[in-house]
Design a binder for these strands. Structure first.
Lengths: 226, 226
DNA sequence: ACCCAGTCTGGAACGACGTTCCAGACATGT
DNA sequence: ACATGTCTGGAACGTCGTTCCAGACTGGGT
């Protein structure tokens, strides 16, 4: 059978990804992983230093695959949108990487996304001294959405007891209606009907518009002021 | 002495905050908390349902205090900047809330920040159908920075063994210089010398510029198209 | 043929955690 | 005096990440 193959780091990471997809971060246990690989915890620890490294390897694998499909769109803004949506869709398929990416900053995985965004920011004609801030804003926004979606997915997936989730949503809307949340009440319909992916893209477009807007503003006055 | 006072939920939450500030999320243990309050775990569980609720209560307390100082600045953009910086500074003082806020979405705490941002977005003259997306973009960006800073603070605070952190930073820069990261290399000096707070504010300004830019664009053509 | 060093396995055990249980202390109303 | 509900805190349970170690397998040197 397939599990007769030798134990290897790749095989461990792959089954870890499968378990994470199936049951979230709390579903990945060295004991459960051992059972599924028909071995003991000690054997796994010979290939992997600890759980953190295992999660990092799983995240890296998934994100690398997601960014491998490089669409190479027409314009730099389109490319940035494509990168952002690629990462977003990876979050959607594997909600657990949202936690990982926002917990291990300055990791190779995050670094690659940052690099990829930064190159397009350069192509956008942003002055060098603003490139770092622009790329960071994009990355931080993407990671923020990632973590938020991960949290949502976790509370929904926990739902063998779905009533718990429904109760939380009811409490949320009750709080919105009883407390003084005029803004939230005014956008309640959008809160209920909005599409996460569209909203994510709208945020990206907002930041992109801000980048070109500030860029035009400075270049109109002077190419490199202050 | 002070600890002779009766055990109450407030006293539990306050000492929990103190322990979280001192040693991060992993420093808060029901056993350590019991020892510090000179009681047993069972006594704490009579006042608090579980650790999640305790963390939520601690986060809510800290964020509420941070937003209580409402500067009521002159213009809506200034107010948004003030709110964002207030939350950012709260993160800086209590890095552990970064994890909390991004893990418990749709919580009253997050909801209050969202409401507060949304009102200023309304004052900005954003058309109703775009208000939700604009406020969400701001919130997601803020939460993204929060989680990122929390991760950084965690890896630094872990540092009884500071060499570990330095080794990680070295490995990071080594990776930047050996791998093909042309963009990262070009902004390396900013990476080393940038101020987190300034960069955070720059991102907020980028989103604000995008909001007004897109707003002008649509209103120039037609007040409410599509 | 033998052996030995290195690679790799997996079961047992450790310590710490969140959480539950429960016997009893304390105050209060009758 | 007694019964009741509030509140305490120590003991214990189950699970987790992790460590330890005795032994199986493999390949190269004699």
């Amino acid at each position: 059978m397939a599990s007769d193959k030798a134990l290897s780091r790749d095989r461990i990471v792959d089954t870890a990804i499968a378990m994470l997809d199936a049951a979230g971060e709390s579903g990945l246990t060295f004991r459960a992983l051992s059972a599924r690989l028909k071995t003991g915890p000690g054997a796994i620890y010979w290939h992997v230093a600890n759980k953190g490294e295992l999660l990092a390897a799983a995240t890296d694998t998934v994100v690398t695959r997601a960014m491998a499909a490089d669409p190479a769109a027409a314009t730099p803004p389109d490319e940035i949108r494509a990168i952002a949506l690629g990462v977003f869709d990876a979050f959607d398929a594997h909600p657990w990487i949202g936690d990982q990416l926002s917990q291990l900053s300055a990791q190779p995985t995050t670094l690659r996304v940052f690099e990829s965004l930064g190159r397009r920011v350069q192509s956008l004609g942003v002055p060098p001294e603003d490139q770092f801030n622009a790329a960071s804003a994009l990355l931080n926004y993407i990671l923020g959405v990632a973590a938020q979606n991960a949290a949502l997915a976790r509370s929904v997936a926990r739902g063998t007891d779905r009533t718990e989730v429904l109760a939380a949503v009811d409490a949320l809307f009750a709080g919105v209606e009883t407390g003084d949340f005029p803004f939230l009440r005014s956008v309640a319909t959008q809160l209920r009907t909005h599409d996460d992916r569209d909203q994510f893209l709208a945020g990206i477009n907002l930041i992109l518009a801000g980048i070109v807007s500030l860029n035009e503003g400075t270049s109109r006055r002077s190419p490199a002021v202050s």
